[in-house]
Design a protein around this nucleic acid. Structure first.
Length: 252
DNA sequence: GCGACAG
DNA sequence: ATCTTGTCGC
């Protein structure tokens, strides 16, 4: 897959103001509602046993300043393609500008991908971002592919209900825009999704923070993550991409 | 100035 | 993200 919108490819040499302006442009081009293929629509419909969608998971690992991006694509419970690419990270981690650090490696990995996923689950935020243009949104708009942001912690926004000790397994809580987000206060920009939880109150699991990347609404984004988190807390394609990135980095 | 901050 | 052993709980 190649960039359909080259003008949005993250350039780490831009000034901070230019990066932020690019993010506003990306957010303006992003679609935070369902605009999905018929095949993807069947992902959440158990009455369809055929035409299963291709679901990709993306995750990065680092070795010094070398960023390795791994992509794992699955159909049903089977891996159908795996690719990876390593690029030098040109800038440090800066909250809100993650795509300018990791985006290059991710797009390089996508260039190696032969199939066209119906949806891509990206590690990190999508619309849950100061300018509504997190990593998942940046990648989705640049490639014009449906994407979902899957983060392990909350960058910004506010849970509608307190979370504290996690939530009951299978439940979700809306994340609303607050003063730190460009969207009107109260806009639902994502969901805290509890894919796993302990039974006893002694220990607890934190939820995943899921948000629309591109061409997927908040509810569908949460539904997809819940649907593919079959074995562990993380959706399987993302978990396997995480393992694959470690595997690639490990042999160095 | 203070607080908050994906990976 | 990454540095890292043991340890708590089922």
């Amino acid at each position: 897959m190649d960039a359909v919108r080259p003008e949005f490819v993250p350039d780490p040499s831009l000034s901070r103001d230019e990066m932020e302006q690019l993010q506003r442009d990306i957010a303006a081009a992003a679609v935070f509602e369902d605009d999905i293929d018929d095949v993807l629509a069947t992902a959440l419909d158990d009455s369809f046993t055929d035409s299963r969608p291709l679901v990709a998971g993306v995750d990065q690992g680092f070795h010094g300043d070398d960023a390795t991006s791994a992509i794992v694509v699955m159909r049903d419970g089977t891996v159908v393609e795996r690719v990876h690419a390593t690029e030098r990270a040109e800038i440090p981690y800066i909250p809100g500008l993650l795509s300018f650090r990791e985006g290059g490696a991710i797009l390089s990995a996508f260039e190696h991908l032969e199939c066209n996923p119906d949806v891509v689950l990206v590690d990190g935020s999508g619309r849950i971002h100061f300018r509504e243009a997190g990593l998942a949104t940046h990648i989705g708009v640049t490639l014009d592919v449906p994407t979902v942001g899957v983060a392990k912690s909350l960058l910004c926004g506010r849970p509608r209900q307190p979370i504290e000790q996690g939530l009951p397994e299978g439940t979700r809580v809306a994340i609303e825009a607050d003063g730190d987000v460009t969207a009107p206060a109260g806009t639902v920009i994502g969901y805290a999704v509890q894919t796993r939880q302990y039974d006893s109150p002694d220990r607890h699991v934190n939820p995943l923070y899921v948000s629309p990347g591109h061409r997927v609404g908040a509810e569908t984004a949460a539904d997809l993550v819940a649907r593919y988190a079959t074995e562990y807390k993380l959706p399987e394609p993302v978990r396997l991409a995480d393992r694959y990135a470690d595997e690639v980095i490990g042999r160095r």
